[in-house]
Every structure is written in C-alpha cells, then in structure tokens.
C-alpha cells in the first residue's frame, strides 16, 4: 500500500493537520467518506494521494475502496486541475440551444480541446452532463459560478473576468 512509499511529502505539516481535523470532524457520523472527500476537495481543490492515505487509516477504509469512490464521481479530482475549472453542459436542452457552438468558442478562445488544461495552468475545460439551470440554456459553470443564455460571442468577455 502507498503508506510504504518513500515519496517526499507534498503536503505541508499544517496541511496534514488540516486533513486530520477534517477526518476527526466527520469520523463519528454515519457514512463519513463523501463528507470527508468534499471537505478535502474544498480545502485543496483536489484529492491529494497523501491525504487519501490518511483518510484510509483514519476511517479504517481500504485505500483501494477510497480510490474507487473518489474516481466514481465527476466532482472529485484526483489530480490538481487548472486554477479555474470550466464545466460546459452538452446535454439535450443546452444542445438544442446551441451549446456546441459555445463549446467550440471556448476551445478556440482557450486553445485547448475539451478535457485539457491551458498551458498557463489557468483553465481546465470539461464537459458536464447537466448543471440544472436548463431554463437559461446553454449554460456553463466556471468554478461555482453559473453563466447562462450564452452565445459564442459572449465567451471572450466571460473568460476575461477570470484574468
């Protein structure tokens, strides 16, 4: 198991203390794993392996199971993503209102394809199944913020707000 690896620690002492605090906070509630993963992701913006190893020990859950759970859900990241994550919806209601053109505009403006990070590490572009704001389709989410009723020409202006 990864506990035995001699990889240098990527997390600082205080970060590790944070991990332990998060584990302690949720340890005694029924079904603690998802709340712990949510809290870790909020803290680090991804789920560092080192933190997951501590979760495995702290909650007494095999690391393999934790990996299985963490990789199942699209909102959990197992690797650091770019500073801002763009989630573009391409399900039917957005598709019908022109999501494809909006996504192409995003790809062009960022110089990446869906699933990639920009080279400067500022944006990750992903697809999402539905973000639940179909009344203002097509829509995207950048981090926690939703943008709706989009047209391709609005894309540069929206991205500029994150620079």
């Amino acid at each position: 198991m990864a506990v035995a690896t001699k990889k240098p620690s990527v997390l600082s002492k205080s970060a590790l203390a944070k991990v332990d605090q998060i584990i302690a906070r949720h340890k005694d509630q029924p079904g603690p794993l998802l709340p712990v993963l949510h809290a870790l992701q909020a803290e680090f913006k991804y789920l560092p392996e080192e933190a997951l190893v501590r979760v495995a020990i702290g909650l007494d859950i095999p690391l393999s199971k934790i990996y299985g759970v963490a990789s199942f859900y699209t909102l959990f990241n197992l690797r650091p993503k770019a500073e801002h994550v763009i989630r573009a919806c391409e399900s039917a209601p957005c598709h019908v209102r022109g999501a494809k053109e909006v996504i192409e505009a995003l790809e062009n403006a960022l110089g990446v394809k869906v699933g990639e990070d920009t080279r400067d590490g500022r944006f990750t572009l992903e697809l999402s199944s539905c973000i639940g704001v179909c009344g203002v389709a097509p829509a995207i989410m950048i981090d926690d913020e939703v943008f709706g009723n989009l047209t391709p020409d609005m894309v540069p202006g929206i991205l500029a707000r994150f620079n």
Partner: peptide, 8 residues
C-alpha cells in the same frame, strides 16, 4: 443535508 458529487 448530504451533498452528491456529480453522478446522475
């Protein structure tokens, strides 16, 4: 409250 993590 428990929050999901993106799975239909």
């Amino acid at each position: 409250i428990r929050t999901g993590a993106g799975a239909y």
